[in-house]
């Protein structure tokens, strides 16, 4: 059974560290990336099913990641997690093709719900919240 490929980008190492286990339990192949520049390379090399990205990161913004992911594959679902959520940012993200946006701080379960929803929409039927 093919697992949905998931990329999580946040310059805060703890975010990936804490979320990785939970997301893998859902049945995703999770890749964690703290450097958005490297994340851009990864996205160009490989089509991820789901990309979760922070917005405010040094040098490269989450919006650039979003654009890159959507350029690489329109099928990619991009979930934005941000510590600076505003209506304007939400609209910008949606306009650029984000799948969803969630404000920091969030509960791990909230994000997992979104991932499950996205994965199911993409046809990964055996993904579900444990």
């Amino acid at each position: 059974m093919k697992k949905p490929e998931l990329l999580l980008i946040d310059d805060e190492p703890m975010v990936g560290q804490r979320l990785k286990g939970g997301l893998e339990k859902l049945g995703c192949a999770v890749e964690i990336c703290e450097d958005p520049a490297r994340a851009l390379d990864l996205i160009r090399k490989k089509n991820f099913d789901i990309v979760i990205t922070d917005v405010m990161m040094p040098e490269i913004s989450g919006m650039q990641v979003l654009e890159a992911a959507r350029t690489a594959s329109t099928q990619t679902r991009v979930i934005i997690i941000t510590g600076f959520a505003t209506a304007n940012l939400a609209r910008e993200a949606m306009e650029k093709g984000a799948y969803d946006m969630i404000a920091k701080p969030f509960k791990p379960a909230d994000l997992r719900k979104l991932v499950v929803k996205a994965a199911v929409e993409m046809g990964y039927s055996d993904i579900k919240e444990y």
Binding site: M94, D100, M101
Partner: peptide, 14 residues
């Protein structure tokens, strides 16, 4: 029809 007016988790939370 613009995507910017689509609802999402964040705005639903709002």
């Amino acid at each position: 029809k613009q995507k910017r007016f689509e609802p999402m988790t964040y705005s639903m939370n709002c």
